[in-house]
């Protein structure tokens, strides 16, 4: 576990975010800061990380926990290095999302919600990501992979493995 502390540079960014809001309304910065925390602290929000964010914003830790547990992008348990999020709603479903999920599940030996034993991958199913015209699709970090075929999925998994990078919503084009 990394030290739960933001770098001076990150703190500067956070101060900028807080300054967007009127005086006394700094709680508005909570969700943006939680995204930063998740990205910096190994892809998930530990109780320590949430307490730290509460301290920065001078609010009760329970307020952070309430918010973090409401939104589906926040992970409250450790995740793999690479989180694969497959859309399984509506048009993606019509266009074969089930096959994509089952294929990834089989290939990695995990079910949605689980992490591979080597800690490399977590598979998540997610609700409509607004990519219905290019269905089926999945998301790794901030990147959308659309018009999926099972071959494309395989190539993607291989690329994730060999890149050795961690997925993060804050990083665009993780695989270049």
């Amino acid at each position: 576990m990394k030290n739960i502390e933001f770098s001076e540079e990150t703190l500067k960014t956070i101060r900028e975010i807080i300054n967007r809001y009127p005086e006394g309304k700094h709680k508005s910065a909570l969700i943006p800061i939680l995204h930063i925390a998740q990205s910096e602290f190994e892809g998930w929000l530990s109780p320590e990380a949430m307490s730290y964010v509460a301290e920065i914003l001078n609010i009760e830790p329970v307020e952070v926990f309430e918010v973090a547990s409401f939104y589906s992008m926040f992970n409250l348990k450790p995740v793999g290095k690479c989180v694969i999020e497959v859309c399984h709603t509506s048009s993606c479903w019509l266009m074969g999302a089930e096959d994509v999920i089952n294929h990834i599940g089989k290939r990695l030996g995990i079910k949605p919600g689980q992490t591979t034993s080597d800690g490399l991958f977590t598979l998540k199913t997610v609700e409509c990501l607004g990519s219905c015209g290019t269905a089926p699709m999945l998301m790794v970090g901030a990147d959308f992979y659309e018009n999926l075929t099972l071959e494309k999925v395989d190539t993607l998994i291989d690329a994730c493995k060999s890149s050795g990078k961690s997925s993060s919503y804050l990083v665009d084009k993780m695989l270049g």
């Binding site: 009760e60 830790p61 329970v62 307020e63 926990f65 309430e66 547990s69 409401f70 939104y71 589906s72």
Partner: peptide, 9 residues
Amino acid sequence: ERVHGVMNR
């Protein structure tokens, strides 16, 4: 000081 609240969704 509030230490309990509504969690999850």
